[in-house]
Computed example of a mutant assay.
Amino acid sequence: MQRATVTLPQDLLTELVELVGARSKTEAVLTAVKDEIRQRKLARIKAMAGKMEFTTTADDLRHGDRRLG
């Protein structure tokens, strides 16, 4: 893990700790960063809706693996 020094307003950090129910400031910041990353990845996936074409049916994906016999 890498250390980083970040200057944040005390009231903002206090609110974050309370909001996420963290036991420490570090835990609160980690939770917030992970959540932001997750939300941005989800937004990218949602933006792809309707832009991909699948030629295989769901049934083929479920039962079409010839390696299983």
Rank of each mutant, 00 (worst) to 15 (best):
G69A: 11
L42I: 13
K46R: 14
R38P: 06
T14G: 10
R67V: 13
E18C: 07
E18G: 08
E27S: 04
A43K: 09
D59F: 12
L13S: 02
E36C: 15
D60H: 13
K46E: 14
D35P: 10
G69M: 12
M52K: 08
D65Q: 05
K51N: 00
Q2D: 03
L42F: 12
T7K: 05
V33M: 09
D11H: 11
I37W: 15
K34D: 14
T55Q: 08
V29H: 01
Q2S: 03
D59P: 04
M52P: 01
A47L: 01
L30F: 13
F54W: 12
H63Q: 10
D35R: 15
G64H: 04
K25S: 04
T55S: 09
E15L: 03
T7D: 08
E27N: 03
Q39L: 12
M52C: 08
T56P: 00
F54H: 05
L68K: 04
G50A: 03
A49T: 12
V29R: 00
A28P: 00
E53W: 06
E36P: 07
P9I: 14
P9C: 11
R23D: 09
K34P: 03
A49N: 06
A47E: 11
D11T: 14
Q39K: 14
R44M: 13
I45A: 07
M1F: 09
A49Y: 06
L68I: 06
T26E: 14
L61F: 12
Q39N: 10
V17S: 01
R44D: 06
I45L: 08
